[in-house]
Amino acid sequence: MDIFLQQLINGLVLGSVYALVALGYTMVYGILELINFAHGEVTMIGAMVALSVIGALVGHVALPGVVIVAMGVLVAVPVCMLLGFTIERVAYRPLRHAPRLAPLITAIGVSILLQNLAMIIWGREYVKFPPILSSATHQVAGATISDLQIFILVLSLLIMAGLVALVQKTKLGRAMRATAQAPQVAALMGVNVNSVISLTFIIGSAIAAIAGVMVAAYYGLAHYYMGFMLGLKAFTAAVLGGIGNLAGAMLGGLLLGVIESLGAGYIGDITGGFMGSNYQDVFAFFVLILVLVLRPSGLLGEQVGERA
């Protein structure tokens, strides 16, 4: 039982990492109906920038670890905001009237571009996250959970709640919803559609930066390639929960994390050794295909025709 509980915790933490990235995906998709393939890469850039700052500070200033990490985040967030803004402005906006294939291909291009740029800047080696955060662990009914794990779980919930409040309660949120539903009408009603879209990218990228730092802190390292798989899994999570739906992204992320953890942990026993944890990455794709085929609107998404 404690093993099962541990797998559940593993899954929830992994899932909250997915959820953090999925929130950004879902925001952009909710408004533009565009898969921002480069979102995972923005996450990676966030981690890399923060790590550069943290690496420069550690050992030179006598500050507590949390403060140093916070300073890293403070630099990474505006960098990613600018990056998100630029990506939308340069690569997506000019293609709004082009056939659907065009922005999709640019998105892939931007993703490859960022990955290789990061590789040239930060090198191919894994960048180490210095061990400056608490690594204390707690025992819960025979399973262990660390401070950082609890923090990531709580943080992703807080960010989600914040975003929901933003979209539901503020003026900007209303403009976003209006833009998502009918851009032309929204524009006629005095909504500056371009600014709303830019802001969506900026907010999404800020969250991506935070997510990137959390991922790097959690696993103790960052790498130019980390954004790709993360982005893919996060996208799956967003689709699973119902793309465009913030609570859905959270739910989808947690669910996917748990599916992967339990899957990798138990598939060997279930299939009598026929399949093992080597198929861990297959689960995510399998779930994705199943959801898209059976319930394209996702778990929490509303049923909209032509959505998928």
């Binding site: 340069v90 690569a91 000019p94 293609l95 082009a98 065009a102 922005p103 291909i105 640019t106 892939i108 291009g109 931007v110 993703s111 490859i112 571009l113 960022l114 990955q115 290789n116 740029l117 040239i120």
Partner: peptide, 13 residues
């Protein structure tokens, strides 16, 4: 790979 990425973006634009 950098050129590939750039080429995809520029071609589309």
């Amino acid at each position: 790979m950098l050129l590939f990425g750039l080429a995809l973006v520029l071609m589309m634009l």
